[in-house]
């Protein structure tokens, strides 16, 4: 290969190397701040003041959903730690026990008062008839 082209390839690699390490350092320093939500286990190791709005995510513990009028209470768990959540309002259609959920709100004395509840679904897609087969 002629030297000019070789030099251009080295230039590109050089620029890429520097920008990749730059981006990597930014992402590394932001680290968990880029996480969309905390898991209950992460909350356990952190001191979070009650006036800071946070998001927690995990699975809705089966059998934990209780409704009282428009107030709904449930437990978000990551199967190691869990946290009680209360919420007043309408939950999305996909909200159900044993499925993913993200709640936005304030942590008050170990109870999470949610202002917004979003459903998180997983990467599995299948028709209902197959799910019944899998259960058997």
């Amino acid at each position: 290969m002629n030297p000019t082209r070789k030099r251009r390839i080295y230039n590109i690699l050089f620029v890429l190397l520097f920008s990749i390490s730059g981006i990597f350092m930014i992402l590394y320093s932001l680290n968990t701040n880029l996480d969309y939500f905390f898991t209950p286990s992460e909350l356990n190791n952190k001191e979070i003041s009650s006036n800071k709005r946070i998001k927690i995510g995990g699975m809705v513990l089966s059998g934990s959903v209780k409704r009282q009028g428009s107030v709904i209470s449930f437990v978000i768990t990551d199967y190691e730690n869990s946290i009680d959540v209360i919420y007043e309002g309408i939950v999305p259609d996909l909200f159900k026990e044993d499925s993913g959920v993200v709640a936005l709100g304030y942590l008050q004395n170990d109870i999470f008062e949610a202002e917004e509840v979003l459903a998180k679904h997983d990467e599995n897609y299948m028709p209902p008839s197959i799910e019944i087969k899998n259960d058997n």
């Binding site: 939500f37 995510g57 979003l118 679904h121 990467e123 599995n124 028709p127």
Partner: peptide, 20 residues
């Protein structure tokens, strides 16, 4: 890399697709 609201990939080169 991060916890996201968006689910992870259903079709990957390495695993069986998690879509029927």
């Amino acid at each position: 890399w991060w916890s996201t609201l968006h689910q992870s990939a259903s079709i990957t080169l390495t695993d069986k697709p998690s879509i029927d």
